[in-house]
Computed example of a mutant assay.
Amino acid sequence: MNETISTILRRRSVRSFLPDAIGQDELDQMLEAARYAPSAMNQQPWHFTVIRNPELLLKLEDNCKSAFLESNVAVLREVAKQEGFCVFYHAPLMVIISADPGAIAAQYDCTLAMENMMLAAVSLGIGSCWAHAVMMFHATEKGKAIFRELGLIFPEGHQPYAAAVFGWPEEPYPEAPPKNADCVTIME
């Protein structure tokens, strides 16, 4: 199996991180991989907001957790009530990718960039986990106000479409859960 496919098959959502910071060299490689993602009509509409500040991450964490507790979705409320629940799993780094919603395919472009970033991370031994709570929280008026209060301001007209946390995994990557083999139709 080639190295690229092996990396893709190794990627897992990591939910337990060491407190050690990710170095600038590793971050630069991950961001470069993200910028090389495909985008509709090569618009490259994305902007990458990198959060390394532990206090800022904790404040965002607390607010996202409160959004879970106030959610209309029962499973999110139940998860947030669990003792020790941590939305960002104590990861030392978060990246939020935003874009102008007027771009041809802003959501897809940002998502593709984040996947490239997550694959680059695993190739470097770094763990990652998608953080949809960021977009859920920012979609509320309270969330937008808290983002401004925290100084998390995106470029003019941008909104977040993808977010993930990154860090050195506390434990080895888990085995892959079984995958659905009956999800392909080939038309010949």
Rank of each mutant, 00 (worst) to 15 (best):
W130H: 07
E156S: 13
I104F: 10
C183L: 10
S128R: 04
A162C: 05
I186W: 12
E171H: 13
F137T: 03
A164S: 13
F166E: 02
F85M: 14
V73Y: 11
K81V: 00
S71M: 11
V75C: 08
I126Y: 01
C86A: 06
Y161V: 06
C86H: 15
V75D: 14
V79M: 12
G127Y: 01
F137Y: 11
T185Y: 10
A162Y: 06
P178C: 00
A91L: 11
E141Y: 01
S98E: 08
A181C: 06
T140Q: 01
A74P: 03
H158Q: 11
L93W: 02
G102A: 14
T111R: 04
G127M: 06
E78S: 15
A74C: 00
M135D: 00
I146L: 03
G102N: 14
S128H: 12
Y89Q: 03
Y161N: 05
M117K: 09
L76S: 03
P169Q: 10
P177V: 08
A162W: 04
P174L: 09
F88C: 00
E171M: 07
V75Q: 12
E171Q: 13
M118Q: 15
N180E: 13
P177W: 05
W130T: 02
C86E: 09
C183P: 01
A99F: 10
V122N: 05
P172N: 04
P172L: 03
S98T: 15
E171V: 02
A133K: 00
L93Q: 02
A162Q: 02
A163L: 02
F85Q: 12
A162N: 00
E141S: 12
K81C: 06
H90A: 15
F88E: 00
A131W: 01
A139M: 04
A163P: 03
L124D: 02
Y161T: 04
P101F: 03
E78C: 03
S123R: 05
V79A: 11
R77K: 15
K144G: 05
P155Q: 06
V73K: 08
V73Q: 10
V134P: 07
V184L: 15
V184R: 11
F68E: 14
M118N: 05
C129F: 07
S123F: 02
F68H: 14
T185R: 15
E141V: 09
L69H: 03
Y173D: 00
Y89C: 00
W130S: 03
M94K: 06
A105G: 03
V79S: 07
L93D: 03
H158L: 08
Q107M: 09
A80K: 07
E175Q: 12
P101S: 10
Q82C: 02
T185K: 13
N72K: 14
E156K: 14
